[in-house]
Nucleic acid binder design. Structure first.
Lengths: 116, 116
DNA sequence: AGTATTGTCAAGTGGCTACTTCACTATTTT
DNA sequence: AAAATAGTGAAGTAGCCACTTGACAATACT
């Protein structure tokens, strides 16, 4: 049922941003950051159905933000690192690009100043 | 018309993730990373209407990822740093939380091993 | 002045998404 | 075995979102 276990290089950045765009899912991740939880234990404090939690977990799992495992009749949810790793990489690369651009802008402004 | 200029502490993280979740908007940012562009010059290579570009720019501006300014009849679009700054902060804080949790998990596993 | 260029407003459309309900399965507990 | 617990699957619904069209406004070119 669960898709291919995403590692940080496999993660679809599109789905990743989409996954993190939902406040309920971020709340779930925050809860999971304190420790593993069953589906029911995730559902109760959030005030949503088990089904909804399952749907969110599938999305989180798909992009390496969480991982679930079923033992007996209970499915345990944990956070995973691949998702944040991928996000971190994305941010880093785009930040350096941004800084390069701002530097260039500063240079241009400096040239303009000296030309006046 | 444009909302309050978001600085990195003001940015709504919800809207930020939502903004970055769209591939067209990320493509726009990538183009802008190479230098400022007019609305038309953004629209042409993307194959969408001027109106669509405007709508995207409003979203990017709202969360500090870009900035636009109109001079004469031409509106010039540039990237901004506040958005990525905010995102970076979010990633950092959530990563340390995640690592704490993984460390704790490792400890528990170590205890289990020594108990057997 | 007249025309082309560049952008803006308002309204509509199709598709996606979060969430629900309800019927059902699988595992424990008693 | 019967009853309770924990989760799963399918299908529906309401709301949001990306994008368009078409009418209009403002600025620049000749």
């Amino acid at each position: 049922m669960s898709g291919p276990k995403a590692d940080s290089s496999t993660v679809n950045i599109d789905r990743l941003f989409h996954a993190l765009g939902d406040p309920t899912r971020r709340a779930m991740l925050d809860r999971l950051a304190l420790g593993p939880l069953s589906v029911s234990n995730m559902a109760n404090p959030l005030g949503i159905t088990l089904t909804a939690v399952m749907q969110h977990m599938q999305i989180l799992e798909e992009c390496g933000l969480a991982h679930t495992e079923k033992v007996g009749r209970v499915r345990t949810c944990r956070i995973a690192s691949a998702g944040l790793d991928a996000l971190d990489q994305w941010v880093r690369s785009h930040r350096t690009q941004l800084e390069r651009q701002l530097d260039r802008l500063a240079e241009l402004l400096a040239e303009d100043d000296s030309a006046e």
